[in-house]
C-alpha cells in the first residue's frame, strides 16, 4: 500500500461534501436499516457544517443519496421557506448541483423536519426525516444501553403503561407529536416529531423513508409497504389531531393539518401547514397552471 493509493488529487470539497469513506459507512448502515425496519442502527455520524440538532442526521443521508440529477425539497414545520429549511436546501444544492424545488411532486428526495407533505409520495421518492431523539423508550428509560436491551427483548410494557396511565388520568392518550409506533410488528420506533396526522402516511406507503438522528448517531428506515402501527389499545382507537374540519384562511382548503394563528379578538385563524400545497391552491384559484397531486387525506379522512 502506498500513500498514493490512500489519497487523491487535492480538491476543495468532495462531491456532496462527505468523503467516500463517510458515504460508504452511511450506505452500509442505510442497507441494514432497510433490512430491519424501525430498528435503530448506530453510525459514526460525521460532523457537517451545521450544528448538531439542526438536521445533521438527515443531511448525511441526503448527501449520500444526492447526484447532479436529484431534485431536492426541504421543509421545516411544513414550510419550504422556513429559515432552517432554506439553509439546508441551499447547502444541498451548492455541494451537489442538485436542483431545488418546493413542489412535492417534482422532488426525488424530500428532507423534512416535523412534517410529511400532504400530497402522496410515490414509489420513486425518498423521504428523509430529521430526528432529534431516536429513542421512543427515553421517557421510561433514559439510559441508552438499557433501552437497547429492551428493544432486543421487545420489552415495551413500560411504554404501554404510560399510555394506559394517560387514558386513566385524562380520558385519552396525551401523546402529541412523535407517536410511538410498532414497525413490521417487531420494533417500536419514534416516527420523529411529526404530528399524529402524519403517522398513517408511513403505513404501507409507496415510498421509502429514512429517519436519521445525527447527534444521537442512529438511523432507521421504513421501507415501502411496511406496517407502521401506532401503539393503541383495542378499545381506544388512534386519534389524529382534530383538524379535519378546519379551513385555511389563505387558500380556502379544508381537511389538512393546520397551523393555528392566535387572533387579537381571542379567536384563532388557521393556515395550511404544508405551505406549498397552499401556494399551489392559491395559484390554481388565480388560474395558473399548478398541479396538486393526490393527497393522503381526502375531505379530512385518510383514503
Amino acid at each position: 500500500m502506498t500513500i498514493a493509493t490512500l489519497t487523491k488529487p487535492w480538491e476543495a470539497m468532495s462531491y456532496g461534501f462527505l468523503d467516500a469513506s463517510a458515504k460508504r459507512e452511511l450506505r452500509r448502515k442505510m442497507l441494514k436499516a432497510i433490512a430491519v425496519p424501525g430498528c435503530q442502527m448506530p453510525y459514526a455520524s460525521r460532523e457537517v457544517p451545521m450544528a448538531r440538532g439542526w438536521g445533521t442526521g438527515g443531511l448525511q443521508v441526503t448527501l449520500t443519496l444526492l447526484r447532479p440529477s436529484s431534485v431536492v425539497k426541504v421543509i421545516d414545520q411544513g414550510a419550504d421557506d422556513s429559515v432552517n429549511a432554506a439553509s439546508i436546501r441551499s447547502f444541498l444544492s451548492k455541494v451537489s448541483g442538485a436542483r431545488e424545488t418546493w413542489d412535492t411532486l417534482e422532488a426525488t428526495i424530500l428532507q423534512s423536519r416535523h412534517r410529511i407533505p400532504e400530497e402522496r409520495l410515490r414509489a420513486d421518492q425518498v423521504l428523509v426525516l430529521q430526528v432529534p431523539n431516536p429513542e421512543p423508550l427515553r421517557p421510561v428509560e433514559p439510559n441508552m444501553s438499557v433501552a437497547r436491551q429492551m428493544h432486543a427483548d421487545a420489552d415495551y410494557g413500560r411504554l404501554w403503561l404510560i399510555l394506559y396511565e394517560q387514558i386513566v388520568r385524562s380520558g385519552r392518550v396525551m401523546q402529541g407529536a412523535a407517536y410511538p409506533s410498532l414497525v413490521n410488528g417487531r420494533h417500536v420506533m419514534t416516527p420523529s416529531p411529526i404530528p399524529r396526522w402524519d403517522v398513517p402516511k408511513l403505513h404501507m406507503a409507496q415510498h421509502l423513508t429514512f429517519l436519521s438522528a445525527g447527534r444521537e448517531k442512529r438511523l432507521y428506515a421504513v421501507p415501502p409497504f411496511t406496517r407502521v402501527e401506532p401503539l393503541v389499545f383495542s378499545d381506544v382507537p388512534f386519534q389524529v389531531e382534530d383538524h379535519a374540519a378546519l379551513t385555511c384562511h389563505r387558500s380556502g382548503l379544508t381537511g389538512y393539518f393546520m397551523n393555528e394563528i392566535p387572533q387579537g379578538d381571542g379567536g384563532s385563524q388557521f393556515e395550511l401547514s404544508d405551505s406549498n400545497l397552499g401556494i399551489k391552491a392559491i395559484r390554481q384559484a388565480e388560474g395558473a397552471d399548478a398541479r396538486i397531486g393526490p393527497t393522503w387525506y381526502e375531505n379530512g379522512k385518510t383514503s
Binding site: 440538532g53 421545516d76 422556513s82 402529541g176 407529536a177 416529531p193 386519534q239 389531531e241 393539518f257
Partner: peptide
C-alpha cells in the same frame, strides 16, 4: 458539538409539535 448544537436547536420553530400537544390537551377531560 452535540451538546451545544442540541442546546441551540431549541431556537428552531417547534410549532407543529406544539399544535399537536395543544390538540391532545383540548381533548383531555
Amino acid at each position: 458539538v452535540e451538546a451545544s448544537g442540541f442546546c441551540i436547536h431549541f431556537k428552531l420553530p417547534h410549532y407543529v409539535t406544539f399544535q399537536s400537544s395543544l390538540d391532545a390537551l383540548r381533548g383531555a377531560k
